[in-house]
Each structure stands twice: as C-alpha cells, then as structure tokens.
Computed example of a mutant assay.
Amino acid sequence: MPESTISLANAKAHLSELAERAAAGESILITKRGKAVVRLSSVAAPKKPIDATALRAVTDAQRNFTDETFLRRMREDARY
C-alpha cells in the first residue's frame, strides 16, 4: 500500500480520521512546509491469519525427535 502524504495543517484538522487509518495498517507521512516530519503508523502490524494446512504440512514433515534410537545415538556421539 503506498504511503499517504498530508500537510501538518490538514493532519491537525483530521487527526481522528488519520489515527483510524493508521490503526487499520496504513502509513501516513505528515509534512511541514513540504518536508517530511512525522510518519504515522499503527503500533503493531496487522496479524495475518494462520494457514492451518501449511502449518500441518510443516509439522508433519518434521522428524520425531523423541525417537529412542535417535536420543541414544546423540548421547553416544557426544561421549566419543
């Protein structure tokens, strides 16, 4: 999303609206005499929904590290 630019005078007049837009994820650049002085943005980036199918694919692809032979092999490798 492109950054919106607004003058300081207009920002004063429309602060509530700008705060709502920033909270929704928009970044707003406030200028004074044509020079950027403030960037208004939300405190936290909007969270993306979790794709359960992709998460399951990743976890299913991981190896089961509680396997007894795997742990035994790690202990023996560390000793020698």
Rank of each mutant, 00 (worst) to 15 (best):
residue 1 M to I: 04
residue 2 P to G: 13
residue 2 P to Y: 05
residue 2 P to R: 12
residue 3 E to T: 14
residue 5 T to K: 07
residue 5 T to L: 10
residue 6 I to P: 02
residue 6 I to E: 10
residue 6 I to V: 15
residue 7 S to C: 00
residue 7 S to P: 00
residue 8 L to C: 04
residue 8 L to M: 10
residue 9 A to K: 13
residue 9 A to D: 15
residue 9 A to L: 07
residue 10 N to W: 00
residue 10 N to V: 10
residue 11 A to G: 03
residue 11 A to R: 04
residue 11 A to S: 08
residue 11 A to V: 07
residue 11 A to D: 09
residue 12 K to T: 02
residue 12 K to D: 01
residue 13 A to E: 09
residue 14 H to D: 14
residue 14 H to P: 00
residue 14 H to L: 09
residue 14 H to A: 07
residue 15 L to E: 04
residue 15 L to H: 04
residue 15 L to K: 09
residue 16 S to H: 01
residue 16 S to G: 03
residue 17 E to F: 09
residue 17 E to I: 11
residue 18 L to V: 03
residue 18 L to D: 10
residue 18 L to K: 01
residue 19 A to P: 04
residue 20 E to F: 09
residue 21 R to Y: 13
residue 22 A to P: 05
residue 23 A to S: 09
residue 24 A to I: 08
residue 26 E to G: 02
residue 26 E to H: 04
residue 26 E to A: 11
residue 27 S to L: 08
residue 27 S to N: 11
residue 27 S to F: 06
residue 27 S to I: 08
residue 27 S to Y: 03
residue 28 I to Q: 04
residue 28 I to C: 06
residue 28 I to W: 02
residue 29 L to P: 05
residue 30 I to N: 05
residue 30 I to Y: 08
residue 30 I to A: 02
residue 30 I to P: 01
residue 31 T to V: 12
residue 32 K to G: 06
residue 32 K to P: 10
residue 32 K to S: 12
residue 33 R to W: 11
residue 33 R to P: 01
residue 34 G to F: 05
residue 34 G to H: 07
residue 34 G to M: 03
residue 35 K to H: 11
residue 35 K to E: 15
residue 37 V to R: 15
residue 37 V to G: 02
residue 37 V to F: 06
residue 37 V to L: 00
residue 37 V to C: 10
residue 37 V to H: 05
residue 38 V to L: 15
residue 39 R to V: 14
residue 39 R to H: 10
residue 41 S to K: 15
residue 42 S to K: 08
residue 42 S to E: 01
residue 43 V to A: 13
residue 43 V to C: 05
residue 44 A to Y: 02
residue 44 A to H: 05
residue 46 P to E: 02
residue 46 P to M: 05
residue 47 K to F: 06
residue 47 K to A: 10
residue 47 K to Q: 08
residue 48 K to L: 08
residue 48 K to H: 03
residue 49 P to A: 14
residue 49 P to G: 07
residue 49 P to N: 03
residue 50 I to L: 13
residue 50 I to R: 08
residue 51 D to A: 02
residue 51 D to F: 04
residue 51 D to Y: 00
residue 51 D to S: 06
residue 52 A to E: 13
residue 53 T to F: 02
residue 53 T to M: 04
residue 53 T to L: 08
residue 54 A to H: 03
residue 54 A to L: 09
residue 55 L to Y: 02
residue 56 R to F: 05
residue 56 R to V: 11
residue 57 A to T: 06
residue 58 V to Y: 09
residue 58 V to F: 09
residue 59 T to G: 03
residue 60 D to W: 00
residue 62 Q to M: 14
residue 63 R to M: 11
residue 63 R to H: 06
residue 64 N to L: 07
residue 65 F to S: 04
residue 65 F to I: 05
residue 66 T to L: 08
residue 66 T to G: 08
residue 66 T to V: 09
residue 67 D to A: 12
residue 68 E to W: 00
residue 68 E to T: 10
residue 68 E to D: 11
residue 69 T to N: 14
residue 69 T to C: 00
residue 69 T to L: 15
residue 69 T to A: 15
residue 70 F to Q: 00
residue 71 L to H: 08
residue 72 R to V: 06
residue 73 R to Y: 10
residue 74 M to P: 01
residue 74 M to K: 12
residue 74 M to G: 07
residue 74 M to H: 07
residue 75 R to A: 15
residue 75 R to V: 13
residue 75 R to K: 13
residue 75 R to D: 12
residue 76 E to D: 14
residue 76 E to N: 13
residue 77 D to T: 12
residue 77 D to E: 09
residue 77 D to F: 13
residue 79 R to W: 01
residue 80 Y to R: 14
